[in-house]
Measured scan of single mutants.
Amino acid sequence: MKTQEELTEIVRDHFSDMGEAATLYVQVYESSLESLVGGVIFEDGRHYTFVYENEDLVYE
Rank of each mutant, 00 (worst) to 15 (best):
V11M: 05
S32I: 08
V58S: 10
E34V: 09
A22I: 14
S16L: 11
M18F: 10
L36I: 11
Q4T: 05
M1W: 11
T3A: 04
Y29Q: 03
Y25T: 05
M18V: 05
T49I: 10
L7T: 04
M1D: 04
Y52F: 08
H14V: 09
Y29F: 10
E20I: 14
I41T: 05
A21M: 15
K2T: 04
V26S: 00
G38M: 11
E34R: 11
Q27G: 05
E60Y: 13
V40W: 06
E55N: 13
M18W: 10
D44Q: 03
Y25M: 04
D56A: 14
K2Q: 06
V26Y: 05
T8F: 11
Y25R: 04
R12V: 04
L24I: 14
V37A: 07
S16D: 05
F42E: 00
V26W: 07
D13I: 14
S35L: 15
T23C: 15
E60N: 07
D17R: 15
H14Q: 05
L57D: 03
V26R: 00
G45W: 08
N54T: 04
E43F: 09
S35K: 15
D44S: 03
T23S: 08
G45N: 01
E34N: 14
I41G: 01
V51E: 01
E20R: 12
G38C: 13
E20A: 12
E9R: 14
Y48S: 00
E43T: 13
R12L: 12
T49N: 04
L33V: 09
G45A: 02
S16E: 05
M18D: 03
V40A: 03
Y59E: 03
I41L: 06
N54F: 10
E53A: 13
S16R: 14
S31W: 13
E34C: 13
L7S: 01
F50C: 05
E20C: 14
S31T: 06
L57H: 04
L36Q: 01
G39H: 12
Y25G: 01
V26A: 01
T49E: 02
Y48L: 05
Y59T: 04
Q4Y: 12
G38S: 02
G39Y: 15
H47Q: 05
E30F: 13
I41H: 05
Q27F: 14
V28G: 07
Y25W: 07
D56E: 14
V28D: 05
L7Y: 04
Y25Q: 03
V28Y: 13
T23N: 07
V11G: 02
F42R: 00
V11E: 02
E6P: 03
R12T: 04
R12Y: 06
M18L: 09
T3H: 04
D56T: 15
E30C: 15
E9M: 12
S32E: 10
E6K: 06
F42N: 00
G38K: 01
E55V: 06
F50T: 00
G19T: 05
I10W: 08
V26D: 01
S16T: 08
F50Q: 00
Y52K: 00
Y29L: 05
G45F: 09
V37Q: 07
G19V: 06
I10T: 04
T8W: 13
S35G: 06
S32V: 08
H47F: 08
